[in-house]
Design a protein around this nucleic acid. Structure first.
Lengths: 409, 409
DNA sequence: GTATTTACGAACGCTCGCTATCTATACTGT
DNA sequence: ACAGTATAGATAGCGAGCGTTCGTAAATAC
């Protein structure tokens, strides 16, 4: 009649804690292999304890043993070294966009095993499900990971995502997408925990992980639409579920959110489409400008920034206006959040320094502590990377025995 | 030659963990006393373990024993009940304003033991230090707590506070205040950890604690100046140190922050002084209005709201304008943070429903998820209460053995 | 080939928590 | 008033785990 009370504290919990401590120490130094002596030092445990834990973890498949490596020749008997066995629990990240599906498979140690991207011209919701399945299989094959090994999946979807039910609201681009239960579908393909989150959130997570360290990060995804993810000390801030929806910030003193419209005022004002439209108008008004030369009839967002980079005053004026509108919209949030850094990603980020400097100048006039303003180094992989990252976090949180006390109330 | 590595895991750490679990269980149900059987249930530990832990905690003075209480008559041998011995580690909260010093002493269980307030007409920095000392002694005497028992102190100061150095920047009201090392001074009076924080932050902490539960809270302090504190799942968000400075949000499309000016655009637009000024102007323009009647020459902020509550259209127009400006300034942050609730405190909060409804109407037009909009129930005690709360958190975090693993990177 | 250095492995003793049993105390029913 | 019962507290024995100590293995240095 074992009561089955997990979480109470007997000596077996002590063992679990210590094993977890060892595993955690190995994880922290991944992918570098560690000697037992180093583990002893890092965990503060006694050698036999660590040795026993390592044995256990080797048996369970979490660690792998390395032969004494050639380079590390020193005095005395060579030490056995262990490292994370990444294949123990690989994870899968999924980025679903209206025109593109990306799947990444990652090591337990965070090494990317495969990354498969497929583009297409506007799928229907049903077609999309099929494509997702195919791309997942492709990525698994490339990573040489059997489907049943996958330990966790995180999927990214545009729109506002309800963390718990896994439903998506407010998706404009794919008709019928919000009716689909993506989580259920993926769980049908891969029998493991599946989570769904906003793409801007996941991109933010990836960027935060890449920058490392603590602090507050505001990561803006700026393309046709505008969204932002907030990461505070490594953890996502979700609010009640719709945090970071900067696209709906009002830009004009008379702006009002129209619940029917899936795009917000700021998106309409400075989304990539709007920038292109501004550029076209400016080109029409100044037919002799470099901007008009570059762009022609189907002038693009990129043309605007290219012309501005070449110091065309007409294009510079457009960029100035965009930067000003964006900075004025973002400044209140910067004041309130006081982030360590603001990182801009997404399609518009390709504009580069031209835009960044203009925003920086404007933001400096409107804030107290001026956060670092950067461009995302991850480009289009940010979302998948963030999804894999979150899946990894999930696995670790599940496998590393609970930090002792997480009572109710 | 004990290596002194605390944090590693022997059986003695197990004991510490379990003792902490018991103490934590008692704390959670404070101030209600608990029977040992209840502790067994809540901690999941065995009875002898709990009994031993209780003995230890009784010896150490953290718990006190209650006789079997009269009301609780039931079958069987009456149980011994234990509760937190609040006097084991009382804490002190300190609210320093330009015209008022407030000191509160609190139980370990969160019971208020004393609260002393002293007002004066604009002290100098030096005088202020003297007053602080006097009021602290008064509060200690009233609480019947010797100074050396105080386990932690948290002081609240207006302005932006550097958490680590304890220095204050940007304080307008008290000349020379930012040069004072308040922490050092208080530590001279009371030999214990002393922390300093922004008053809006601490008020937010108190309000969050009063509301209970998790989620994101945006607590606005609205008086002559405007500040806000952000509490996410019970923990303060500080950003790089200046989070929540909503007073500096631009209200006009041409507004710019002037680093020389200690007040920001929003404060100048809707701070209590500005509201009074708007009221006076409106009264001049409409001498026959109820507003003009009520206020006369030295028309006050309160008069504006009073007249508006009596449905005076002139006053209502002023309130409408204030609400609109405030809501437009706050909306971006509400979109980004997506808080569970927005609570308004400070002097202007006395306006009541008139203002709240007007803001709510405006905010509804500008946000996606509409947070609950409430008035602070704590009134002027919010800051001291929050300071005591934070001091308590500090004590608990220090005394409850660390949750096992908090290694460095 | 010997000495030295480093790491692995095994045995012992200690502390701790859990299970089970026994004693103490007060209410309840006849 | 007295026996019965239900609940709480105290004690003994058992098992598990960690830490310390000692002995052994495997490499390098001289």
């Amino acid at each position: 009649m074992s009561k089955g009370t997990v979480g109470g504290g007997g000596t077996t919990m002590l063992r679990r804690i210590n094993v977890a401590a060892v595993l955690d120490a190995v994880r922290r130094s991944a992918p570098a292999p560690l000697r037992v002596a180093e583990l002893v030092e890092r965990t503060g445990l006694a050698r036999p304890t660590v040795a026993q834990a390592v044995d256990e973890l080797l048996d369970a498949g979490w660690l792998q043993q390395h032969g004494p490596d050639s380079a590390d020749r020193s005095l005395g008997r060579p030490a056995i070294r262990v490292s994370l066995r990444g294949r123990a629990a690989p994870v899968l990240g999924l980025d679903v966009g209206p025109h593109r599906v990306t799947v990444g498979v990652s090591d337990l140690a965070g090494r990317k095993l495969s990354l498969v991207r497929r583009s297409g011209p506007g799928w229907t919701a049903q077609e999309l499900l099929g494509v997702i399945g195919e791309v997942i299989n492709e990525a698994l094959a490339e990573a040489e990971v059997p489907a049943e090994d996958i330990a966790a999946v995180v999927a990214a979807s545009p729109g506002i995502v309800d963390e718990h039910t896994g439903r998506v609201q407010l998706v404009p681009s794919v008709p019928g997408w919000s009716a689909i239960d993506l989580i259920k579908h993926v769980r049908g393909l891969l029998d493991c925990p599946v989570m769904l989150d906003n793409d801007a959130n996941l991109a933010a997570l990836a960027i935060a992980a890449a920058r490392g360290g603590t602090g507050t990060l505001l990561a803006v995804q700026w393309g046709e639409r505008l969204g932002a993810g907030i990461v505070i000390d490594g953890r996502l801030h979700r609010g009640t579920g719709a945090a970071g929806e900067i696209g709906f910030i009002a830009t004009d003193t008379d702006d009002v959110i129209n619940p029917e419209d899936s795009r917000g005022p700021l998106e309409r004002a400075v989304g990539s489409e709007a920038i292109a439209a501004l550029g076209r108008q400016a080109a029409l008004d100044n037919p002799k400008s470099r901007l008009a030369e570059l762009g022609g009839e189907q002038l693009d967002t990129a043309d605007v920034f290219a012309a501005a980079a070449e110091r065309d005053p007409v294009a510079q004026a457009v960029v100035q206006q965009v930067a000003r509108t964006f900075a004025r919209a973002l400044a209140p949030s910067v004041l309130v959040l006081d982030p360590t850094a603001v990182v801009i990603g997404g399609g518009v980020a390709r504009a580069g320094a031209v835009l960044l400097d203009a925003i920086s100048d404007q933001l400096r006039l409107l804030t107290l502590n001026h956060p670092k303003l950067e461009l995302s180094a991850l480009a289009e992989d940010a979302v998948v990377t963030g999804a894999m990252r979150m899946a990894l976090d999930e696995v670790w949180q599940r496998k590393l025995p609970t930090p002792a006390m997480t009572s109710t109330t």
